[in-house]
Structures are given as C-alpha cells and as structure tokens.
Design a protein around this nucleic acid. Structure first.
Lengths: 182, 182
DNA sequence: ATCGAATATTTCGATGTCGAAAGATTATGT
DNA sequence: ACATAATCTTTCGACATCGAAATATTCGAT
C-alpha cells in the first residue's frame, strides 16, 4: 500500500484554478492592455480575504454571543495583562479605530458589564477602562474557540506556506510604516 | 568600488524587526502560553494591511475627486467592456456589497452624472446601470494614477516576493471558496 | 502663579453599510 | 391559465464609524 489517500480538506488548488481576482485582472487586461494592473493582484486579494475572513469570524463569535468589535476590545485588555486595564488612548492606538468610536464601544461594553470605566486619578484627562470579572471570564472562554476557528479558516495553506505568508505580510507592513510602538 | 549603496526606498526589513502584530502575539504568548495564537499572525496582518492600504488608496482617489466606493462601481462597469453596462445584480456580485448599498451607490452616481440607470426592457425586474460619457472618461483618467499609486504602496516587496504573495493569497482564497463565477 | 499650548475624551452631525420586509416582475407546475 | 415560488430592486430602520468641534485637564514657559 503505497498510495495515500489525500484527506478532502487538503484539496489541491494549483495555478490552473482561478479565483475571483483572476477574472478581475483578465477583464482589465482585455480592456486596458496598456496598463499594468498587477498591483491589484495583491490589493484586490487582501480586500476579498479580509471580507471573507471577517464574515466567518463574525459568525463564529456570534455563536458565543459576542460582536467582533466587542471581542476586539476585550481581547486588547486581556492581552495587556493584569490588572487588565488600559487608558482610552491606548485602546485607540491598539485597535485602529478613532477615539469617538472607542467612546461608543466602551459605553456599550459598560452597559453589558463586561468592562468598567473610571477617571484616572493620576491624570484626570484620562479614562481607565478595565475588564470586569465577567469580562475576563468571557474573553478567556471565547478566545480558545476563536483561535481554533481561525486555524480552520487557514487550513488551505500548510504550515510552511502559512509561515511564508506571514513573512511577506510582515515585510510589507513594515515597509508601510506599521512598526511596533517604541 | 564594490559597495553598492542601497537606495533608501529599498530599506531592509528583516525578521529581527517587529511590526505591530508581533507585539500583539508576544502579549498573547505571555498571557496565554497555552494557546496557539499563530493564526492571528496572518489574520491580524491582513486586517491591518487592509486598513492601511484602504486609507492610502482613499487619499489618492480623493485627489482626483472620487470616493473609493465611487471608483469601485465605475471600475467594475469599465472593465466589463463596451457598452459598459451591467445589471444591479451583477454589480452586487462583483463588488461584495449588499443590494441595498448598491441602490444607494447608484443613486448618488446618477446624481453626479457618472452613470445612468434604466429598467431592462427584456426583464423589467432588472435594472441596467451604465457609464455615461463622463463616467467613462473619469474612470479611464483616474485608473492610471490609481494603479500607479498602488504599485508604490507595494514597493516594499520586490517583484519576486510580490508574486509569491499573490500565489499564497490565491491559494488561500480558493480554499475559502472564493472561486471565479464560471 | 498664570496664560496659552498640548493632551485626552466626549458630543454631534454626516455617511455608509446591513438585513428584513415590501413591491414588482417573471418562472414553474399542474 | 392560475396560483405559487423565485428573482430583482428598493425602502426602511438600526448600527457603527469618522472628523470636527466642544470640554476638561495638565504641561510649559515666562
């Protein structure tokens, strides 16, 4: 027995197969052969990827009773470590949303008793946002299924390919100035 | 003289340098060493990439007097080829927005005289949306600067790396079911 | 000490998206 | 033919975001 049956989850996607962006590019090539539209091969795909992954991840979180923006805030506080509190400014920096959106998010998380908000006594301009016990329990419970679900979404790439993808994405992000703070 | 000076645009970003997601992952590793959060290395980065690229591209289009959603619709019609008209349904399929959003988009493009809308006489449920002369001229003028701007954003990767990135993204998208419609 | 600049958050109005339901038209099965 | 299902678009209400302005507090220079 030298023939291994390939599990169906490892279906092969070779270069003969086309995704939606290939069609997209072929249309441009036909209509504007003078243009080099190859940048769209990357940018179009990161866009579609983000939409598809975002939707799937949102569905998984919905089963746990969380919206994605809720998980993002809770997870940011959680991974900051004990005592699981950050200033509003830090939350804004770490989540890529504007300050007004963060005010709104914290408002609603406070209403759900997942975080608490208080004025920083050391600097009363600041607001300290911290996980409640319920918030901590929630994020610690949900994060496991969350990363497991994400892993499933990426199963189309083997570990080697995933690592190569990470390397390329990091290099691109660094070139765009997305460095780690200090 | 055997030393070549490297142009500053070709700054090197090696694995010693950290981007924002590396910090993110390091925090999780410290707080929850039991979890394998490696999927976030990819998903976190595509997210940030999309945000950063989206903003930059939006800025470039704004200089031409277009919003990104406007360009997306005009470009979809343009690359469909003469006579540059599609049904609403097709536009929805090709742009990944819901039908109600498309109604809204077409409304506003009609007001700007960039597209026209009429009922399909062959099937009066359908709406045909087509580029006006002004819409065609606009998209043909703007698309050149658009792809040029996108190319600049990707300069952090050399052509070889860009190609490898495309291959990995396509494979991942195919595995997620994002195939080209027949 | 005090005035003006800088920092941090909130409020407000404008935008744009989504999903569900409504409305209009066409396809299907008997 | 006719009722019913399916298809396509629009309307409507709910949300979430953004940027600019408003508010409150602290810092800095004199």
């Amino acid at each position: 027995m030298f023939v291994l049956t390939r599990p169906s989850s490892a279906r092969r996607y070779d270069r003969r197969m086309n995704d939606a962006v290939d069609l997209f590019l072929a249309q441009w090539a036909r209509e504007r052969p003078d243009l080099d539209v190859s940048p769209m091969a990357i940018i179009g795909r990161t866009g579609r990827l983000q939409q598809i992954l975002g939707r799937r991840i949102g569905d998984l979180l919905a089963e746990e009773g969380l919206e994605r923006w809720e998980f993002d805030v809770l997870a940011t506080l959680r991974r900051a470590g004990a005592p699981y509190r950050l200033t509003g400014r830090d939350l804004v920096r770490m989540t890529m949303v504007g300050s007004s959106a963060m005010t709104n998010r914290v408002d609603r998380l406070v209403k759900r008793d997942l975080v608490h908000r208080e004025v920083d006594p050391d600097n009363r301009r600041r607001v300290l946002v911290g996980l409640t016990d319920e918030g901590l329990a929630t994020v610690d419970r949900v994060v496991e299924g969350h990363v497991a679900g994400e892993a499933v979404l990426l199963e189309g790439l083997d570990p080697d390919e995933q690592e190569r993808l990470v390397g390329l994405l990091r290099k691109l992000l660094l070139s765009l100035g997305d460095g780690a703070p200090e």
